[in-house]
Each structure stands twice: as structure tokens, then as C-alpha cells.
Design a protein around this nucleic acid. Structure first.
Lengths: 205, 205
DNA sequence: AATGGCCTACCGTCCGGTCGGCAGATGACA
DNA sequence: TGTCATCTGCCGACCGGACGGTAGGCCATT
């Protein structure tokens, strides 16, 4: 087996174990066994256990950011942009459930330097949503709300799906995304304010 | 020092350390040092490290459930009941931040038996909110939404505050609770549906 | 001959938990 | 009230094992 493939296998096995048992409860020897390899061989591909974790988190954050930016391309309506971003966010988190779960629960396993790196990426990602919301407020599409608090809220909410979602459950990814989407947009319009805009295309179509 | 006080001290120190460093990263000897005691003495008060964790989680869940039930007493309006519950939920999580953070991030440290016990308590608590939402739908106060998904969403959202809230930050507990409250209630009314009810007393008063 | 990819064997450390005992407070009893 | 046995709360020393990581070598491919 070429090195790059083994490396990917290790990462995949580690992702699965970190997701199921947690980072601390997973031993390098567990990952080795799952990869059909000896413990020492792991260190040919990754410098340390933390390096492996970091690699998973970095890739996930990278992919997520790229994905959401792609998703937004060509969409101009301010409300639709947020809707699209929510769908993208939920979709990404539910389809790449394990990695995202780890990214939101195992940051503790990182050294302060690596921790800061991931947090920086996360902050940049959050800023995308904050800008979308702010833009919506400025355009009058949303009520005047606390952008920071609600952006955290929205992301947390969508992210949480990664901890309970079951691919073969009652609802599929798209259905869940739609539920969140409507809930959030309605929340941002604030019922007691003027809720006068007509339903958007994305909803009725 | 009487035994009961030392026991409380240990629990408090453990809560602080579990919150700051995480359960696995905290050694019994750390807790002992923080309590001004020797490691072996911890075991006079608690049977094991897990027992200590479980004790924290059990107390927290108990207190939370009792608190929310008290909060709801005497409130009859269906929308106001949910509002009150949200305020209570947020308030509890932000004022007893450490314990709640642990309760939502360190369940992995529990044996399957203890894990089940806590999950049972959590499920019972969630059911309170699910009933409130369902009741609001039946009464026409809320749009017809997916109760299960949105109850998870609401609780997660409010709970998340415990991971970033800073007591001396820009907003205090009540302000944050109000933001969440309005956001959620608006979300449940669903902007594109019939949002015809007048603002409730709690909002204008 | 050299490199890549993996192995066996081993090391040092840390950590949860146990054991036996010790000092002071408590209480029964003469 | 003085004496002695008992209990309470804690301690120092230790154990067993798990775990991250290393050293050095082996073998197939190039």
C-alpha cells in the first residue's frame, strides 16, 4: 500500500474512533489495530497523536470554509444568502458528521498553539455568518438583533445536529436543514416586528 | 473540618478543574492539591473519580429540573410558559456555568450505567419543553413545526451559552435570555405562516 | 546500494486506586 | 474526672497497568 493511502486510512480510522470513544479514550494502539498496522508505524505517518487530531480538525475547517464560500457564489439576495449558508452549514455538518463532532468537542486535546490555529479558522468562518446577518439587518430584511449572540446561536444550533443525527432516522439531511432554515429566518425577522416580506422563492419552490 | 464540608470543597474544586481542563486532563492529585488534601483522602469521600463526576452531573440535573418546574408554577398562558421556561433554562445555565458545561461535554467519562441515568434525567427534562411546544402548536400560538428537532435546537442553543458566557462581558444574563427568548418565540411562530397574534404582555411590559 | 514502509521490543511516565497506619476527637465507664 | 477503647478523617508509600513515544532493524522495491 502506498504511503498516502495508508495515511488516509489512519486518519479515517482515527476519525471514527475519536467520534465514537473520544480523543482521550482512544489509544494509538486502537488506531493501529483498526488500520491493520502496528502502533509504531503510525509514527511514520504522523508525528504524534495530537498531530493526527490537528490534521483532522484542520482539514475539516478548511473544507467547511471552502464549501460555504462556494455555496454563496452567485447568490445575491441578502435573505437567500443566509438561507443558502444555513443549508450549507447543516448539510456539511450532517454529512461529515464525525469530523464535525470532533471539531466541536475535542479542541481540548490540542496544544495552545494548535488550539489557537483552529479557533482562528473557526472565527473566520463565524464572521461569514455575522456579515450575512448584519447585511440583512442593514437591508431591513431582518429585525435589529444582536449579531454576535445570534450568530453563535445559529451556528451552535445547526452544528448540534452532528451530535444526534442518524443517517437512517426519521428525517433526512435536507428536511432537517429546511426546518432549521425556516426557524432561524423567522427568528431573525422577529415576530413582533414588521413581518411583511413575501415568502422567498427558495421556500415556495 | 467536618466531613460534609470537605466533601463539598472537593466537589467544588473538581467542578472547577473539570470545567477548565476537562475530565480526562484532570488528575485526582490535582483535585487533592486544590482541596488542600492528599490524594488518598479523596477516596474517603468519593468512591472513584467517576463517582465524583457523576455526583456533579446528578446534582446539576436534579437542580435544573426542580428549578424549571418551580419557574413554571402559576403560569398558565401557553406562550408565556415557554418564555418563562427559556428564561429559566438560560438563567440556570449561565449562572451555574461550570457544572452545566461539564454536563454537556463530559458525559463520556461515565460508565454506561451512570451514563444512562443522566441521559434519562436529561430526556425527562427535554420532555418538559417538548410538551410546552406541542401545547403551543395545539393552541395555535405556534406554527406547526417539528417538535422533536426544534426542542433539541432550542435547548442546545440556550445551553451553548454556558461555553462562551463571561459574567463580566458585554451583556448580562437577563439580556441574553431575552435575546434568546424573542428569537425562539419568533422562530416558532414562523414568519411565512399566519403571524397574526398581537405581541404578548411579557414583551410589551 | 539506497530508500520506503513497516515491524518487534522496549522505555519512562503518569495516573487511578489501595493499604496500613496515625493523630486527635469522642464517648463509655469506673 | 481520669482512663482507655473506638471512631473519624486524613496521610505516606506503594502498586499495577496503560499509554505515548522511541530505537533499531528487516525486507521488498527501485
Amino acid at each position: 500500500m502506498p504511503a498516502t493511502k495508508m495515511k488516509a486510512t489512519i486518519k479515517s480510522v482515527a476519525t471514527d474512533l475519536f467520534y465514537r470513544k473520544g480523543y482521550y479514550a482512544t489509544a494509538i494502539s486502537d488506531i493501529a489495530r483498526g488500520s491493520g498496522i502496528q502502533k509504531a508505524s503510525i509514527y511514520y505517518h504522523y508525528a504524534s497523536k495530537e498531530d493526527l487530531l490537528f490534521s483532522i480538525l484542520e482539514t475539516t475547517m478548511d473544507d467547511l470554509t471552502v464549501y460555504i464560500r462556494e455555496t454563496l457564489e452567485g447568490v445575491s439576495d441578502v435573505e437567500e444568502r443566509l438561507r443558502v449558508a444555513i443549508r450549507g452549514h447543516v448539510g456539511f455538518h450532517l454529512t461529515r458528521q464525525k469530523e464535525n463532532f470532533i471539531a466541536n468537542s475535542e479542541l481540548r486535546g490540542l496544544s495552545s498553539q494548535n488550539f489557537r490555529a483552529i479557533v482562528r479558522m473557526r472565527d473566520a468562518y463565524e464572521r461569514i455568518f455575522q456579515d450575512l446577518i448584519r447585511r440583512g439587518i442593514d437591508d431591513g430584511a431582518f429585525a435589529v438583533v444582536d449579531v454576535k449572540i445570534l450568530s453563535y446561536a445559529i451556528l451552535t444550533l445547526c452544528t448540534a445536529g452532528a451530535s444526534w443525527f442518524k443517517p437512517d432516522g426519521r428525517l433526512n439531511v435536507d428536511e432537517i436543514a429546511l426546518i432549521y432554515e425556516n426557524f432561524i429566518i423567522s427568528g431573525l425577522k422577529q415576530a413582533e416586528g414588521a413581518v411583511l416580506r413575501p415568502p422567498v422563492a427558495a421556500l415556495s419552490g
